[in-house]
Nucleic acid binder design. Structure first.
Ligand SMILES: [Mn+2]
Ligand SMILES: [Mn+2]
Ligand SMILES: [Zn+2]
Ligand SMILES: [Zn+2]
Lengths: 137, 137
DNA sequence: TAATAAGTGCAATGGAAGTGCATTTGTTAT
DNA sequence: ATAACAAATGCACTTCCATTGCACTTATTA
């Protein structure tokens, strides 16, 4: 779509074939993906390119990184106007113990967390683990 | 102390010199430790032994694992009667972006998190990042 | 004391993240 | 249009941490 190119340009990211493909791949995935997932989807491309593309997207706040506790970093597109710069993604993430998929619950914002005196909270990572909607029914 | 031996026995863990030492090491640390931390504290012992000791402790719910987002697994003693079996540690963890230390905030329980219909929450991992009390003053 | 099981040490493996450098592709200035 | 330059890509390699196989030692128990 035309809009993806506009989006990339608006974030000072040069439009390349690879970047468009990776963006589309992320956009049509409803779940967070690992680098290996991307690798498998683009077997012709080099791992490094995919890695650096994701890192570029991350720096420019197009994707955010998710640490769901599996030890493998996952990535997902940011919401429109998510402003990761200011506060890292404020929504919570759900990791399914059954299918091992991780999903952004973008409507579910992270509640205010109180910390003891002397501690300063800058951001919060909240991962709920359990059974996802696909696996529970 | 006598009590450590009793504790280990009550959890069906054989008492060995190494295990007592590692337990004591964890007990006197107020922060969560990495395997490397333990390794540095016991240079004479083999990495594998330390690793397996920690894993044994983990299985028997004497320590719990903490994923603070640094990519390196950390460990800390469970609270008395923490019952990790039922619900993984319910308290929140604080990671200091300055000194890189991670601490259990055992008094600060994780609030109830609502998830969408169809999702079943089994447990929650909550890591707050910011500046710790030692670094903020 | 012999048989057995558990604990420990050494070596090696595997997976994922990250980096250096050469090559290719795209942009900009002449 | 061409040359000069900068960014993107591909390949090889490295590092770091987690994990395992197997031999050896130490502790239990028969
Ligand atoms: Mn997300
Ligand atoms: Mn803890
Ligand atoms: Zn699922
Ligand atoms: Zn600190």
């Amino acid at each position: 779509m035309q809009t993806i190119e506009k989006l990339l340009e608006s974030k000072d990211i040069r439009v390349t074939a690879m970047r468009l493909l990776i963006y589309k791949f992320l956009a049509e995935k409803e779940i967070a993906v690992t680098l290996s997932d991307i690798e498998n989807a683009f077997e012709k491309a080099d791992r490094t390119t995919l890695y650096r593309t994701i890192k570029t997207f991350e720096e420019k706040d197009i994707v955010h990184q998710i640490d769901d506790g599996t030890g493998i970093t996952k990535y997902a597109l940011c919401e429109n106007g998510c402003n990761c710069e200011i506060e890292t993604d404020l929504h919570l993430h759900f990791h399914c113990n059954n299918c091992n998929e991780t999903i952004c619950l973008t409507d579910h914002k992270i509640p205010q967390i109180k910390v003891p005196d002397g501690f300063v909270s800058e951001n919060v990572n909240l991962v709920v683990k359990g059974i996802c909607d696909k696996c529970s029914r």
